[in-house]
Computed example of a mutant assay.
Amino acid sequence: MHLAIRAALIGCTLWMPVAAAGEPTLVATIDDAHAYARYGQTITYVITLTNEDPATAATVPVAVTLSPAFDGDAATWQCFPGVDGVVCASAGSGLLADTAVLPPGARATWLFSVPMQATPSETTATLTFAAGDIAPLTDTNTLVIFKDRFDVPYADGTEALPLQDGVRDVFALAPAQGTAIETVRQWRLPDDSRVRADRLRLDTQDLVRLRLAPRAGAARSSAWAAVHPGAALALVGGDGVVLLEGAEHALLVDRGAEAQR
């Protein structure tokens, strides 16, 4: 048998066969949809591990290591098992360290979010993912300075919807445009903070999260939550938080001192 590694590295796909007789065939991928990252920016990596062998891959250790450009202590992660029988921890904080059980043909997906240091001395940021005995995968971003807070078109708020505290904005998810993380709606709060709802398509499931960019300081994110087909979502701000309702569970982000100004 062979172990195969597939890594998405700045728009490229890399296959690395590694001989490992008697071991299940595992395929790992990393994708963060970025070639560049801003100082202080939080990047979300979509990491998958698939068992392409007819035998179960039991107790496979998985781990992430980071170069000094990252603030690893502030990292968070969640695991989404693809089918019944997959075993992984539901969530954690800090560096990803988990153990997976993968039945034949099954896949586990980890969403690993980590901010860059605000003032690193490095010019690149490299994440390394290791799983079992396969050769580690790496993903490297070049660190740059962006003007806009969200690093997307209209991130200066020209397309953000004004939202007053206590007002609910109800909306539905449009069809996904692909498998990358995409912003589906943005708001501008009275304190001039920006809030956006992000969506990620995993297989046939939509996940959403909230992302808050205050006028000053680091951006903050909620956890990811599944959205049932046809569900109506609603964002409301007030009492120092922003809340997204309608997903599998409510998502909340603390506005901090910004809400008091």
Rank of each mutant, 00 (worst) to 15 (best):
T42I: 04
T42E: 11
I43E: 03
I43N: 01
I43T: 02
T44D: 00
V46D: 03
V46Q: 13
I47D: 11
T48Y: 03
N51M: 01
E52C: 08
D53F: 05
A55K: 10
A55P: 07
T59M: 13
T59H: 14
V60F: 01
P61G: 02
V62Y: 07
V62W: 07
V62S: 04
V62Q: 09
V62E: 04
A63W: 09
V64K: 01
V64N: 10
T65N: 03
S67M: 06
S67F: 02
P68N: 04
P68C: 04
F70Y: 11
F70D: 09
F70H: 06
D71K: 12
A74L: 14
A75L: 11
A75W: 06
T76H: 09
T76L: 10
T76W: 07
Q78W: 06
Q78S: 10
F80Y: 13
P81G: 09
P81W: 08
D84V: 13
D84F: 11
G85W: 07
G85E: 05
G85D: 05
V86F: 03
V86A: 04
V86D: 11
C88T: 03
G92S: 10
S93R: 12
L95M: 13
L95F: 05
L96G: 14
D98G: 02
D98I: 01
D98E: 06
D98H: 10
T99E: 02
A100Q: 09
A100I: 12
L102A: 04
P103C: 04
P104I: 06
P104K: 07
A106S: 10
R107M: 13
R107N: 10
R107L: 08
A108K: 05
W110K: 00
W110T: 00
W110E: 07
L111D: 06
S113T: 08
V114Q: 03
P115N: 06
P115C: 02
P115Y: 06
M116P: 00
Q117N: 11
A118D: 15
A118W: 08
T119Y: 14
T119L: 15
P120E: 03
S121Q: 13
S121L: 14
S121Y: 08
E122C: 05
T123P: 08
T124S: 12
A125T: 00
A125K: 07
L127V: 12
T128Q: 13
F129D: 11
F129M: 10
G132E: 00
G132V: 03
I134W: 15
I134H: 15
A135D: 15
A135W: 15
P136K: 12
P136S: 11
P136W: 13
L137C: 10
L137W: 13
L137T: 09
T138M: 08
D139F: 06
D139Y: 11
D139P: 04
T140D: 09
T142G: 12
T142F: 07
L143I: 11
V144N: 09
V144E: 13
I145K: 14
I145E: 15
F146N: 09
